[in-house]
Amino acid sequence: MTESYVIHVNRRWQTEESTISDFSVENTDLKGYILEEKGPSSAQAGMQLRIPAGEYNLVWHHGGRFGPKVPKLFNFQVSPGRLILIHPGNDASDTEGCLIVGHSRKINRVESSKLKFGQLMKLLEPTDLSKSKLIITEDFQ
Rank of each mutant, 00 (worst) to 15 (best):
E3R: 14
E3Y: 13
E3T: 15
E3S: 15
S4Y: 15
Y5A: 13
H8M: 15
H8C: 12
V9K: 13
V9G: 13
R11I: 05
R11M: 14
R11W: 15
W13P: 01
W13L: 12
Q14I: 14
E17L: 14
E17Q: 15
E17T: 15
S18T: 14
T19R: 09
I20F: 10
S21N: 13
D22L: 15
S24A: 13
V25Y: 12
V25F: 12
E26V: 14
E26G: 05
N27M: 12
N27W: 11
D29H: 12
D29W: 09
K31S: 15
K31H: 15
K31T: 13
G32S: 07
L35R: 10
K38S: 11
S41L: 06
A43L: 07
A43N: 07
A43I: 05
A45P: 06
A45Y: 08
G46S: 09
G46K: 12
M47Q: 13
Q48N: 12
R50E: 11
I51G: 03
P52M: 05
P52Q: 03
A53Y: 04
A53R: 08
A53W: 02
E55A: 11
E55H: 09
N57Q: 13
N57L: 09
N57W: 06
W60L: 11
W60G: 11
H61R: 11
H61C: 09
H61V: 03
H62W: 12
H62S: 11
H62Y: 14
H62V: 08
G64T: 11
G64L: 08
G64C: 08
G67H: 02
G67F: 02
P71W: 07
F74M: 09
N75F: 06
N75W: 05
N75R: 03
N75V: 04
V78L: 08
S79T: 09
S79W: 01
P80L: 06
R82D: 08
R82M: 10
L83Y: 12
L83C: 04
L85T: 05
I86F: 06
I86A: 03
P88H: 09
P88Y: 14
G89P: 07
A92K: 01
S93A: 01
S93I: 01
S93D: 02
T95V: 04
T95F: 01
T95Y: 01
E96A: 11
E96L: 10
C98L: 08
C98N: 02
C98E: 03
L99I: 03
V101C: 07
V101N: 02
V101W: 02
G102A: 02
H103K: 10
H103G: 02
S104W: 01
S104P: 05
S104K: 05
K106P: 00
N108A: 00
R109W: 03
R109N: 01
R109F: 01
V110N: 00
V110E: 00
E111I: 00
E111W: 01
S112H: 10
S113Q: 00
K114T: 02
K114H: 08
L115R: 06
L115C: 00
F117D: 04
F117R: 00
G118M: 05
Q119N: 07
L120S: 01
L120E: 02
M121F: 04
K122G: 09
P126N: 05
D128Q: 13
D128N: 13
D128F: 06
L129N: 07
L129Q: 08
I135R: 12
I135G: 08
T137L: 08
E138A: 11
D139M: 05
F140C: 10
F140V: 10
Q141G: 11
Q141S: 13
